[in-house]
Design a binder for these strands. Structure first.
Ligand code: FES
Ligand code: FES
Lengths: 144, 144
DNA sequence: TTTATTTCGGATATTTTTATCCTATTTATA
DNA sequence: TATAAATAGGATAAAAATATCCGAAATAAA
């Protein structure tokens, strides 16, 4: 469904969110340990999220990755997915036609669009804040 | 969402279905032309579908790929997807945890499972027959 | 039985994704 | 200002997905 990069990106963002809530910045090393991902690769993904302004980074000593605590509820999964995998997964054609077009639908268009729209709706309406809350309260987990 | 291989596999199966309906076998060459895919790669995917008994092949002169006309309505998209991409897309964890486990859910589990189940339901309840019918009647298309 | 046709399957090549490594740059503090 | 700590980013490497090529095996028809 999502690329590895995107999975790491989502989990990393959640971990950053939790820490930002407590005013702490985190490093790729801490993140990779917490989400069970390759550190250097994770760092690259974080860079991409910074470029797309999903998260923020502070260089130098006492630096690290953070998100604005007040923006947590406005940062949606869709922003993370779009920054890393693009929006093809929730906007593109399920069978890889150049674009999904009502006037030139692929064989699964009518069936697929509902699934895709539900995915889109889910991604656009799920905030980093709620995901972070569930981790903090031990309801969900970032690694096996 | 689906791999290229899977997209080709689905489209190829539909084209084979249409022809089988008229008692005709088709070659990888005809298929690749019709679905706009690389021929040799498509042939490999067809082999996989044959191994998984989703479609049937006949070697030698006047051979080709076919499906049993009477089974068309019982062949579901899920069989094709499972044969090529495996069932991770509609059974696995959205964030790549080893398995999707209600008792050890990832952050998106509650939100994701509905989407995934709708996808699963769609794949398991969409037959090759109905997809082929829509192509035959010009309602949908196999290529851009 | 020979020939033409067609799928099968192994080997290889290319591209994309995933992953690692090393140096440059930035920045807080001593 | 010097130092240590941290992200940025380029260069590579490894693995997986995508794609191509060719000979072997099977089969129908001449
Ligand atoms: S055209 Fe394929 S999903 Fe809409
Ligand atoms: S545990 Fe991740 S989707 Fe269920």
């Amino acid at each position: 469904m999502f690329s590895k990069a995107c999975e790491y990106g989502i989990k990393a963002s959640i971990f950053i969110a939790i820490n930002s809530y407590e005013g702490k910045r985190v490093s790729p090393k801490e993140i990779a340990k917490e989400i069970n991902s390759p550190q250097a690769f994770t760092a690259k993904i974080l860079q991409a999220l910074v470029r797309h302004k999903v998260i923020n980074s502070v260089k130098g000593a006492y630096g690290g990755f953070e998100v604005n605590k007040n923006e947590l509820k406005y940062i949606k999964l869709s922003q993370i997915v779009k920054a890393i995998d693009g929006d093809n997964i929730y906007n593109g054609c399920g069978l890889g036609l150049e674009k999904c077009d009502e006037n030139h639908p692929c064989p699964v268009h009518e069936k697929f669009k509902d699934v895709r729209n539900e995915l889109k709706h889910m991604l656009e309406n799920t905030s980093l804040e709620e995901l972070a809350m569930d981790i903090k309260s031990g309801i969900s987990f970032l690694k096996a």
